[in-house]
Every structure is written in structure tokens, then in C-alpha cells.
């Protein structure tokens, strides 16, 4: 047992911290749009080799990357490219990568920018190059870009040999949990700072115990979700992945509610940064069928119903 990162991972953490610092500090407040992308982040991560982190530093390294990026106010596809694809495909796939449960006719995250898609098809997984695909970009409020491609014939895409849908789900779940953890972390940090400074009734809101307690509970959920996510990355056990995703998706719902509640009206504006994380958490809470489906899958695997 060892709950600290080893020296390589500590160095990775520091490297990421340094590289991402400038994007963290500059919250585009005031002129904020619902969707924030910043191609410069992807480019600098790619140049520094971070998208290949899984090969060098395993799933734990990839989760650290996903978590660090998810803390930013910008949206960026990294979970599929840095974790899911390297785990499933020997050939590198053109990024960004969209993940799909089988039909590109449903709104799919990152599809408008995606170079390829990883898709469930029965018990197989297919990797599709999207170059010839006519993607209909959707206008979405919910942080990510979405697209669909009704005409895509997925049966033409090559099957990844020996890869099961269970494996796709497993690494998708871990990436999802890591994204949730990063986004929850930033939303909670922002809210804690806010209630320390916002005064009503001649005192900081953060001195009210009800607010302290509910944010402390969010903090416990965050610590727990994070540890479960790292455990799942470490063990490579499908049930650990499903449990981490179940826990994280449940926690996301709670954290969105509490962080908004304690911001009052300002949290609902696009001129204040909370929405960067809210919108993502709202989308992530229902991914892969949501916490209940994730849980039911975990239960069937754990106790072979």
C-alpha cells in the first residue's frame, strides 16, 4: 500500500502544473461563451508528448493528465486520446477521438472536431476514421461540442482485434471518472473561495455552518471519487472502473447542485466561470447511461447476478 505518487508521477504532476498554469489563471470572465475551446492547449500538450503518456507512465499517468486538463475552464478531448485509444488500439488513431456506444446518429461528444471514433458494435469495438464523414455540428449549451452523423456506416470501419466492448467501457468509465473529478475539484475550489469573500448579514457566507457542512461533504465525495478513480487505473479491473464511474457520476450531481446553490444568481450567468464546470458535469453525469446503469453493470460483474 502506498497512497503517494512515485517520483516519476510527482514529476509528471509538476510538469503538467507548469504547462497548464497560464490557462488556469486566465479565466475568460466577462466575455465568456458557453463553449470554451483552446487549440493552443492541445497543441502544447501534444508537442510535449503528453498524449503518449499512457505508454510511458501507464493508466495512472493518463488519469493525471485527464484530471489536470479537466480542472481548466477549457474543454479539450484528452480522455479518449490519451487513455482509451492507447489501451485498445495498437495503431495510433487520428485525434481528437469521439467515443460512441454504437450509433453516430445520436449527439456525440467531440464529433465535429474528431479525426476518428471508437465505437461499440455488438461485443466488438470498431475504430472509424472520420475523414469522409459528413458530421452535422450541433449548437449546444453544454460545454462540449456535439455532432451527429446519421449516414455513417459503421460496419465499414475496421474491428479492433481481440478488443471487447467491456474493455471500451472500462477505460471510458475511468476517463469519465477522471474528468468528473477534475471538474468537481475546480467547481468546489471556486465555490469555497467565493463563500469566503461574499458577505451577507455582515459576515462571510462561508461562516454559516450549513454552507461549511455541505461543501465539506462535497470535499469528502471528491476525495473518495478521486481515490476510486486512481485505484481503477492502477488495478485495471473492470469492476473497479464501473464503481469509480458510479461514484463519480453520483457525486457530480450533488456537487453541481451545491456549488450553484452557494453562488446564488451570479453562478447562473455566463459572465462568471462556474458554468465551465457545471455544464461539463451535467453532461458527464449521464454518460454511458448514468450512475444507475453503471452501478447495475458493476453489480452484475461483481456478483454475477
Amino acid at each position: 500500500m502506498d497512497f503517494d505518487f512515485d517520483s516519476d508521477h510527482i514529476a509528471l504532476e509538476a510538469g503538467l502544473d507548469q504547462l497548464l498554469a497560464k490557462y488556469r489563471g486566465s479565466l475568460p470572465v466577462g466575455s465568456a461563451a458557453a463553449l470554451q475551446e483552446n487549440p493552443a492547449i492541445a497543441a502544447s500538450l501534444r508537442d510535449a508528448g503528453y498524449f503518449d503518456i499512457e505508454r510511458e507512465m501507464g493508466a495512472t499517468g493518463a488519469v493525471m493528465l485527464i484530471e489536470a486538463v479537466a480542472k481548466l475552464p477549457y474543454t479539450l478531448e484528452v480522455a479518449a486520446s490519451a487513455l482509451v485509444a492507447p489501451k485498445l488500439s495498437k495503431q495510433p488513431l487520428r485525434g481528437p477521438i469521439a467515443l460512441s456506444q454504437g450509433s453516430l446518429a445520436t449527439p456525440t461528444r467531440f464529433l465535429p472536431q474528431a479525426g476518428s471514433a471508437l465505437m461499440a458494435d455488438g461485443n466488438q469495438v470498431r475504430a472509424m476514421d472520420l475523414s469522409g464523414c459528413k458530421v452535422e455540428a450541433l449548437t449546444s449549451q453544454f460545454a462540449y461540442s456535439y455532432g451527429r452523423c446519421a449516414a455513417a456506416d459503421i460496419t465499414k470501419a475496421p474491428v479492433l482485434p481481440g478488443v471487447t466492448v467491456g474493455q471500451l467501457q472500462q477505460w471510458w468509465q475511468i476517463g469519465l471518472a477522471a474528468e468528473i473529478v477534475g471538474a468537481m475539484h475546480s467547481a468546489i475550489d471556486l465555490t469555497v473561495e467565493y463563500v469566503k469573500n461574499r458577505r451577507q448579514f455582515n459576515r462571510p457566507l462561508g461562516s454559516f455552518q450549513v454552507i461549511q457542512h455541505r461543501l465539506s461533504e462535497c470535499t469528502v465525495l471528491l476525495h473518495a471519487a478521486r481515490l476510486l478513480t486512481y485505484k481503477a487505473a492502477w488495478s485495471g479491473e473492470p469492476t473497479d472502473a464501473a464503481l469509480a464511474a458510479t461514484y463519480a457520476q453520483d457525486a457530480a450531481v450533488r456537487v453541481v447542485y451545491e456549488t450553484h446553490q452557494f453562488h446564488g444568481a451570479i453562478g447562473l450567468t455566463l459572465e462568471y466561470p462556474l458554468h465551465y464546470w457545471t455544464n461539463r458535469l451535467r453532461r458527464l453525469q449521464g454518460e454511458l447511461g448514468g450512475a444507475s446503469q453503471q452501478g447495475s453493470r458493476a453489480a452484475q460483474a461483481l456478483w454475477a447476478a
Partner: peptide, 30 residues
């Protein structure tokens, strides 16, 4: 145990137990 509601509730317990254990072990590690 075939009811998916029961299954989901069971997984939530398992997750909470795993989390409690891992967080306790982190304290012991300290």
C-alpha cells in the same frame, strides 16, 4: 437480485465501502 434497482443500490454501497476503506488506508499510510 435480478432487479436492476437492487443491483445499482448494491454497487453504490460497494463504492461507498471501497472509498471508506481506501481513505482509511490513506490515513494509515500517513
Amino acid at each position: 437480485f435480478k432487479d436492476t434497482d437492487v443491483q445499482a443500490a448494491a454497487a453504490r454501497c460497494q463504492g461507498a465501502l471501497e472509498a471508506a476503506k481506501a481513505l482509511a488506508l490513506r490515513v494509515i499510510d500517513g
